[in-house]
Amino acid sequence: MPTPLLHVRDLSVSFATYQGRAMVLDRASLSVNRGEIMGLVGETGCGKSVLSRAVLRIIPSPPGRIDGGEIVFEGRDLLTLPKKAMRALRGDRISMIFQEPMSSLNPVYTVGNQMREVIRAHREVSRAEAQAVCLEMLEAVRLPEPGTVLAAYPHELSGGMRQRVMIAMELSCRPALLLADEPTTALDVTVQGQILAILAELSAREGLSILLVTHDMGVVAQICSRVAVMYAGQVVEVADVESLFARPAHPYTRGLIASIPGRAGEGDLYAIPGSVPSPIDPPPGCRFHSRCTQSGPDCRRAVPEMVLVAPDHAVACHQCPGGGRP
């Protein structure tokens, strides 16, 4: 097993709310290997976006707080890194693209202004050199007329074009890791396909690792090589994409896969019964037990540990064969 590029271990993040501290991430662990596209799936509010933002340490604080764990990237724990060193990593070694291409670019500056700024924040280059890198990147994301795009303001571009601009901007310093937080959710389906194709191509060509946060199992199936499934602030299953779809081990993962439209058969839409527990006062034991059809007495008492059920397939469930207790 090669050392992973990114290793998140037992990461806990909480937010102050008027009702109390919300444990949004509770000892979540996952790793991303070099050059792979790792999917991070789960329903809205499960903490997947918070996890990706925690890697860059851009969780607004207050109210957010990283309570514990470690985030090892290229051999360094990012949580103990001085602010300045952390800032130097952002946009350079680790980049991030967001869900809303409409609002992720500053409306009052041109695309070129914003792209050059990122490059020149990390590289000692002239304006002209930065400009050349911008043009090259815009071509890499297959934007026609890159010169025109650079001179344009964000509102003059379509959503798909803006997301390509974001990708070009975020990859302009050749990062090792791209955090993509629902990058296609706000786009229509045809554009979504193009963006995913670009991400897959760049990953393959540049050896770029991508942590792709999504709630769309279809997207996962399309471009990810491995997947981590999150539920209520915890990572409950990690597997390569084939095993996950063929032999989902965790009841929640099975529910997720069953909920993909068109899979339940006869036009029925399957939905997991119940709703996500509150992060403020989470239930003891397995967080999924109240919605789980197979839960037993252990599930209410003890938090299940992640256990390998097959090579490169780990699950945290008391009911899985070999799962549950370490």
Partner: peptide
């Protein structure tokens, strides 16, 4: 609170910028 501010921070720009 806008997204582009998060983008700017995520791009490693200084607090002043």
């Amino acid at each position: 609170g806008q997204d582009y501010i998060t983008t700017a921070r995520a791009n490693g720009l200084s607090a002043g910028r």
